[in-house]
Each structure stands twice: as C-alpha cells, then as structure tokens.
C-alpha cells in the first residue's frame, strides 16, 4: 500500500499532463466537429476522396454529421493517446528504478520483488483507469452542446470500456519490456516503438482485404469502434486474444523480474 501510494504520487504529474492532453484533444475535436454537425455538404466532399484514404483515417464506418459518428472516428485517436500513455507508464514504472539507479535503494528495503511489481502495476492500472474516466467524462460533456442522440452515451461507455482493455494490453507490454529488456535506458523507446509498429500494422490491415489477417496482430484492431457501433459488443475472439495477451505478458513479467539481475 505504501509503495502504491508512493508510485501514485510519482506518477501524479504525468497523469495530470495526460488528462490535460486528452481534454484538449476532446475540446479541439468538438470544435472541428461544429463544421460537420448536420452539414450534408461535407459528406459530398468525403465521397470525392479515395476510399483507401477514408479507410486509413477510419472515416468510412461512420456518419460524420452525427455526434455518434464523429465520436466513432475520434475513437481511433483516443485509442492511440490512451495506448501511448499506458505503454509509457507501464515501461517507465519499472525501468526508471534502474535508469535512475534507485533500484539499489528500493530493492534493498525489506520488500520482495513480487510485492514491488504488484504495487507498481496497481499504480499504473489505476492511472490508466483515471485517464480513461477523464476521456469518457470529457466526451460526454463536450457532446452536450450538440443535442446528442440517446444512443451516444452507451456507445461512448462501451468504447471506453473496450479502450480500457487496450490500455491493459499496453500497460502489460510496457512493464513486460521493462522486465525483459537488458538496457533500462532504452526500454521506454522500445516500448513506444512496439506501440507505433502495431499502430501502423493496424492502418495497413484496413487498407487491403488481402492483408486482412494482420488485424489479429495489432491490438488497435481489437477495439474497432465501427464494429462496436454496428454489433454493440466486441467480437469474443478479440476479447479472448486480449485476455490471453495480458495474462501471458504479466506472467512473463513476474517470472523474469523475480529472477533476473538488476542492472545497476
């Protein structure tokens, strides 16, 4: 509990910054939306654009002149922002002990590595949860100005829950990389690299039906807001893959971190 509180305090500034970024993103997003809102001419302009581009920007699945449709398009960017925060926090929470050489202090206290790991993980998960809540609240508040359809709130909630799963995956990716990689100084950049890699795979997967199978390789495709809107829930296969991924990554984290040399 002490370690958890300590880690939360250490992460507080970052959480505040990210909350600010997300709120700003929502505000700017809705400001742009005012140009689309109830404006069929914009749709005509979209029709003139090449389909591959629309699909890359995930503009195809939604009716952009409604708040729900607009949020559906925005969801991909929510996903990216929340995932970046998650992977940064996950990797940094562990790697910084070695990078800043505080491991020699923290791990000579009478605490097992397992307990330390659990407390750090809990702190990061809590932060991810709060950030998700901030995004959810800011969206619903921002939508108020546009007479939202009754279906909007449940759709936003479902999407944010799906994004919580995505955050869980990337927290696990980050912390696992920190446990496994030999160079603490490079861990965070490696984690961001993995994230951007999977993000580009998700963009490519949507471009061409021949590489459709790529969608299984990237968590960003597991939480497709278009699918959520049409089907009302995520396909079970993605939920299972996500759960399996999280469990595997965390198991690898605990097994490795408890047995490896610290880099001092």
């Amino acid at each position: 509990m002490r370690i958890l509180m300590h880690e939360l305090r250490r992460n507080a500034k970052s959480l505040l910054t990210w909350s600010g970024i997300l709120m700003l993103f929502v505000v700017v997003g809705f400001a742009k939306f005012s140009a689309w809102y109830g404006n069929p001419e914009m749709l005509a302009m979209l029709d003139a654009m090449p389909p591959a581009m629309l699909s890359a920007l995930s503009l195809r699945a939604f009716n952009l002149t409604t708040v729900t449709g607009f949020f559906g398009v925005m969801a991909a960017y929510y996903a990216l922002l929340l995932a970046i925060a998650a992977v940064l926090w996950g990797s940094d929470v562990l790697a910084r002990e070695e990078r800043e050489r505080t491991a020699e202090f923290t791990l000579t206290l009478p605490v097992t590595r397992g307990r330390l790991l659990t407390a750090k993980l809990a702190a990061v998960v809590l932060c991810a949860l709060v950030l998700n809540g901030v995004a959810w609240g800011a969206t619903l508040l921002g939508a108020r100005g546009y007479a939202p359809e009754p279906a909007l709130a449940p759709f936003v909630t479902r999407t944010m829950l799906a994004l919580l799963m995505l955050q869980g995956i990337f927290v696990s990716v980050g912390i696992c990389l920190a446990a496994v990689l030999p160079r603490p100084r490079r861990t965070v950049s490696a984690a961001v690299g993995v994230l951007l890699g999977t993000y580009f795979v998700s963009v490519i997967a949507g471009l061409d039906a021949r590489v459709d199978w790529l969608k299984y390789l990237t968590p960003f495709r597991y939480v497709d807001a278009g699918v959520l809107l049409r089907q009302g829930a995520l396909p079970p296969v993605y939920r299972w893959i996500s759960a399996a991924l999280i469990v595997t990554l965390l198991a690898a984290t605990y097994l490795t971190y408890q047995r490896r040399d610290l880099h001092l």
């Binding site: 250490r10 800043e100 050489r101 505080t102 020699e104 202090f105 000579t108």
Partner: peptide
C-alpha cells in the same frame, strides 16, 4: 546497506 553511490527518488 550503504551503497558506494547513493541515489534516491
């Protein structure tokens, strides 16, 4: 334990 170089948060 007193390490040769001390680092804190």
């Amino acid at each position: 334990y007193l390490p040769s170089e001390v680092f804190y948060y």
